[in-house]
Design a protein around this nucleic acid. Structure first.
Lengths: 190, 190
DNA sequence: ACCTGAACACCGTTCAAGT
DNA sequence: ACCTGAACACCGTTCAAGT
């Protein structure tokens, strides 16, 4: 059976969600596609590039249109949406963190945040710092959350499968810090 | 030659700093110690435990006494000290991030932050959220920084080896958000 | 354009046995 | 207490060759 690049990415997401990032190996993915491992190198130059494509597809599937008008509400929406996208697939946060750390993809969330922050008039440098600080928070928090969620998934049935998260509280901390620096003031609207 | 557990950890740090985290393998470490790989399993039950011990030692070496009195200044000192500790060894940020994500060690920075935050009287839950938000920022920012620093280390000699970092700016953002929630007010002192 | 076959140079981990 | 020998079950990647 012959595959396109997109088939490989789609199947990689299934393997990721079913077996986890540690078991998303080139050999395993190849065998699931009924193909020799070397065939994958026709579509991707190496594993990192494959993972970058998988991360981008995962983020694309989680993308939602912005409803809010004010920049600070848009920022909260973007960060919550990113968290939801990461939690939607097993090891999603770990995958996207890895890809971002390697700098090979998953740049959409950063770009979206910079765009949303524009009306806050922070200046180019501070806007970049703010966007990256938000991103570090969301990735770090969600990685923690997902790790512990999955660690507890062997627990009793009575366990709360999604204990009240302090995601909103932590995000509020950072957004307040940004709002203090907005030249549009505490009550700035887009 | 026979070794103690501490010899193994010390040598692992040398391997980490010389060859990087990807090359800190059980087999490589064993061969540097002039020992068969299986010998390492006398000292550590698995690789994760070894990495946890290495992360703890790296943090121990970077520990410094606090000079500041005010809680917000102490927080800044702790975060800057943590960053310095991570930057002191190759792939230090990646190592500590990994160990923390697995939840097997490197808990000192979190505990120190919670202690420093006590005078801000945030309440137990918010103090925990604030400490983890700070930690996510420092680890994420330093991981970015270290990755790009090392990626650029093959560049021209004229390159600035340590371009002005926005670490302080991002940290200020988060600390301001925390200060807003302190019941001791903007000017709170310990 | 997409894939096979075969190889290279590696991994982490276990476990009986040695001193 | 600390280590060896030998094995098990894997990795990512390259490359000539096939259709």
């Amino acid at each position: 059976m012959r595959h396109h690049r997109d088939d490989v990415v789609r199947h990689a997401i299934v393997v990721l969600d079913t077996y986890g990032l540690a078991d998303l190996t080139m050999r395993r993915l190849a065998s699931e596609l009924d193909v020799r491992p070397s065939a994958l190198y026709h579509h991707f130059r190496d594993k990192q590039s494959l993972l970058a494509a998988v991360a981008d597809e995962l983020l694309r599937r989680g993308a939602r249109p912005l409803a809010a008008q004010a920049w600070d509400e848009q920022v909260v929406e973007l960060c919550s949406g990113l968290r939801d996208a990461l939690l939607a697939y097993r090891d999603g946060a770990e995958l996207v963190s890895t890809v971002i750390a390697f700098g090979l993809g998953a740049s959409q969330p950063y770009d979206d945040l910079v765009t949303a922050l524009a009306p806050a008039r922070l200046g180019e440098e501070l806007a970049s710092t703010a966007a990256r600080t938000l991103l570090h928070f969301v990735l770090g928090h969600t990685l923690d959350e997902q790790t512990h969620l999955q660690a507890g998934s062997a627990g009793a049935i009575g366990d709360d499968p999604r204990p009240r998260s302090d995601f909103g509280a932590g995000l509020g901390l950072v957004v307040d810090g940004i709002r203090l620096r907005s030249s549009r003031g505490v009550d700035a609207r887009a």
